[in-house]
Every structure is written in C-alpha cells, then in structure tokens.
C-alpha cells in the first residue's frame, strides 16, 4: 500500500515537469511580457533595460524555466514577478476561498446527485428517468458562465435574495455553489444512474430481497455500496477540478480564489505566479485522485485485498 502511494506520488514529478514547461512555453508564445504593464510614461530606456535584465527577459525562455524549476525542486515556488510577493503565500492566501467553495459545491452536487441518480435508475425507462436524463443533459451542456449570469440576474438582481458577488457570509456561497454544483450534480447523477443500473441487475440484490431486507436498505446497503466506485471517481474528479479553481465561476461571482489568481497571473504575464498556481493545482489534483483511489479500498474489500497482499492473515478452512 505504501509502495503504491509512493509510486503514485513519484509520478507527480514528470507531471509537474510537463505542466510547468507547457505553461512556460505557452506564456512565452503569448505576446507581451510581465514588464509591459510596469512601464510608465516616466521611465527611461535604461530603466526598461534594467527591468528586462532583472526578469531575465534578455535570456531564452528555457533559461528562465530551468532556473524556476531549479528553485522549485529546492522547495521554492518563487516570487510573483508582478508583486514580488511569495507565490506560495499568494496561493495559500487564496486557497481557502476556493477550498470552501469547492467543498460546498461538491457536497451540494453529490448530496443532490446521488438520490437523483438512484431515483432514475430505479425507474429506468419511465418518464421520470427520461426527465432526470433531460436534466442531466441540460446540466452538463449548459455553460457555467451563462448559468451563473442567469442565476445572478434572477436571484441577485430581480429578487435580490443573494449577493451578486464577493466572498462574504453564507449567502454569498449559494449562487456560485449552485452554478458549479449543478454541473457536478448532473455528471454525478448520470454516473450514479448508470452504475446503479448495473448493480440493480445483480443477483446479490435478489439474495438480499429474498432475506426480506426492506427495499430502502436493499438500495442503500446493498446496491449503493457496490455502485460507489464510479460515483466516488466522479466526485473526486469534480472536487479536484473545483480545487484548481474555476476561472469562469470565480470571475462571474468575484470570488477571490485560485482561479482568479491564475487568470490575473496569465493576463499580467506573471509566469512564476501562473506556473506556481498550475503546479500547486496539479499536485492537489494528483493527490485527490490518489485519495479517491485509496478510498476504493475502503469501499471495495476486493481492492483492499490487493493492497494488503502478503500481510493478510489467511486462515485455512477445515
């Protein structure tokens, strides 16, 4: 098990090298550099040249990349090129906003999605199933930008029930969480439905019913437990996607999280900050998927058996 975790974590290294190189090269290809927004009308040519040298802009991109990654592998995420503040501090100061919204969205999404998915699976082929399928289709295909604005117009402008933006009290979570959670709900509900459909045909449910297990327990204890793995995967993917910070949702709702931080970093050509954000979110992504993988073992004893191979106390039957 530990070996497995370590192996998975080692995979992070090539992943991080790839994403960081990608972001460096892409941002180098974009027109403009970080110093462009710093130039003022009173600067002399010498000042500008000095700035260029300070940011190594007179050297090739690969030099800057290697320099940055060298620092990174020595535990230094660097300093924002624009503000000069530590990238790590910037990331950490913004992370709570994204984390809280992500958790609320995931909880909202999952808590709604699982009953919907089960409901649809139990009524597969009926009008109810078609209705929920329609809902999930709308949910997955609706652009969140558009949905967010729609909710804003309705609930912040017309009814003025929730704030139109900002990261404040509980009420400010509602609209962004619905916007991002709805997509999550739709995807998870669809996944729940299909994996429940598969499980609902299983023989062991018939065994459970033959024992006189009430239908609600048949679903909850016997079926859902077997359907968990794909559902968990979907939720885990959703969570890690949210944690990367949805630039769109954070922009629409003025949410000061990682998504906004990254967008601003890219638009200001702040390569170190952008790269730092991407690296951190990649790490989170890999770790969450790893946790989900490990959760499989809790849900499914067969997988647990695989991890525990060797150390299992195996008794021989008489």
């Amino acid at each position: 098990m530990l070996r497995y975790v370590i192996r998975r974590l080692l995979w992070l290294i090539p992943v991080l090298l790839c994403v960081s190189l990608l972001i460096y090269v892409l941002m180098d290809l974009a027109p403009g550099t970080v110093i462009d927004s710093m130039i003022t009308e009173q600067m002399t040519p010498e000042d500008i040249e000095k700035l260029r040298q300070e940011y190594d802009l007179d050297k090739p991109v690969i030099y800057r990349y290697v320099k940055y990654m060298w620092g990174f592998f020595h535990g230094d995420l660097g300093k924002s090129q624009v503000t000069g503040l530590s990238v790590w501090d910037s990331f950490i100061s913004r992370f709570p906003a994204t984390l809280k919204l992500s958790l609320v969205s995931v909880v909202f999404g999952a808590v709604l999605a699982i009953p919907i998915g089960i409901f649809a699976a139990q009524r597969a082929g009926t009008i109810w199933d078609n209705l929920t399928t329609g809902f999930t289709l709308i949910g997955t295909s609706m652009p969140s930008f558009w949905l967010g604005l729609l909710l804003l117009i309705l609930f912040a402008y017309k009814i003025q029930l929730f704030p139109a933006g900002g990261y404040q009290g509980p009420s400010s979570y509602v609209l962004p969480a619905i916007t991002s959670g709805l997509m999550m709900t739709a995807i998870t509900a669809r996944q729940t439905r299909s994996s429940m459909l598969e499980v609902l045909r299983a023989d062991y449910l018939r065994t459970a019913r033959a024992k006189g297990v009430p239908e609600r327990l048949v679903i909850r204890r016997h079926a859902l437990k077997n359907a968990w793995i794909p559902i968990l995967t979907t939720i885990g993917m959703g969570l890690s996607r949210f944690l990367a910070g949805s630039a769109v949702i954070e922009t629409v709702f003025s949410w000061p999280g990682i998504g906004r931080l990254t967008v601003e970093a890219v638009s200001q050509r702040d390569v170190t900050l952008a790269c730092g954000c991407v690296i951190m979110t990649s790490i989170l992504y890999v770790i969450i998927l790893l946790i989900v993988d490990l959760l499989y073992a809790f849900v499914d004893p067969r997988i647990r058996g695989k991890y525990a191979s060797g150390s299992r106390k195996r008794k021989v039957t008489a």
Partner: peptide, 18 residues
C-alpha cells in the same frame, strides 16, 4: 475598494446595495 471582474454584475451590485 473591490474589483469586480464580471462587468455585467457591477450594475447589479450597485442596484442591490452591495
């Protein structure tokens, strides 16, 4: 002093007192 990235919500915030 806050920056509101989404232009269309600025008027909304003004109208609903945010």
């Amino acid at each position: 002093l806050k920056y509101v990235a989404e232009e269309s919500t600025r008027l909304m915030q003004l109208e609903n007192g945010e």
